[in-house]
């Protein structure tokens, strides 16, 4: 089993780094090539969400990304925002997406969650075990 941990200041510029590392570790773990685009997108969405929450709450704590390959490829993205902010995710129905009254933030959040739910079969969003924050846990199979 191998574990790779990355923690980064909650700035948009670092989300790309997290995506690159996440895909590199996925490839090394044996995740199928045709799933790597989805891995890249999902890790990016989870990190984007975490960065947005830290900025919304003025938190300077780093965002944690932990990748492990114990029989499957598991990625945890951990934020430190108040839990009530993180759990209430919902996908938006099509007729609301272009609604004039929908704010850009609400749209991006809804679309981001639709992408996570759509691309990750094994997805959990739950409070962290200790302290304040939310963990997005995503799992992909390894092997061919």
């Amino acid at each position: 089993m191998a574990t790779v941990r990355l923690s980064f200041s909650p700035a948009p510029v670092h989300v790309r780094t997290a995506r690159l590392v996440g895909v590199a570790v996925a490839r090394r773990a044996g995740v199928r090539e045709d799933l790597l685009d989805e891995v890249r997108l999902a890790i990016g969405e989870a990190c984007t969400r975490a960065v947005a929450l830290h900025r919304q709450y003025g938190l300077h704590d780093p965002v944690l990304v932990e990748m492990s390959d114990a029989g499957q490829y598991a990625v945890r993205v951990v934020d430190r925002a108040p839990i009530e902010a993180g759990i209430g995710l919902a996908a938006l129905p099509p007729d609301e997406l272009a609604d004039e009254s929908l704010t850009d933030e609400a749209l991006t959040t809804g679309v981001g969650f639709a992408l996570l739910a759509g691309f990750v079969e094994d997805l959990q969003v739950r409070p962290v075990d200790e302290g304040v924050g939310t963990e997005v846990r995503m799992v992909w199979p390894v092997g061919r």
Binding site: R19, R40, L41, G44, E45, T48, D104, L107, T108, T109, V111, G112, L115
Partner: peptide, 8 residues
């Protein structure tokens, strides 16, 4: 690459 922010 295109994410939710770009779609927004």
């Amino acid at each position: 690459f295109l994410d939710s922010t770009g779609l927004g």
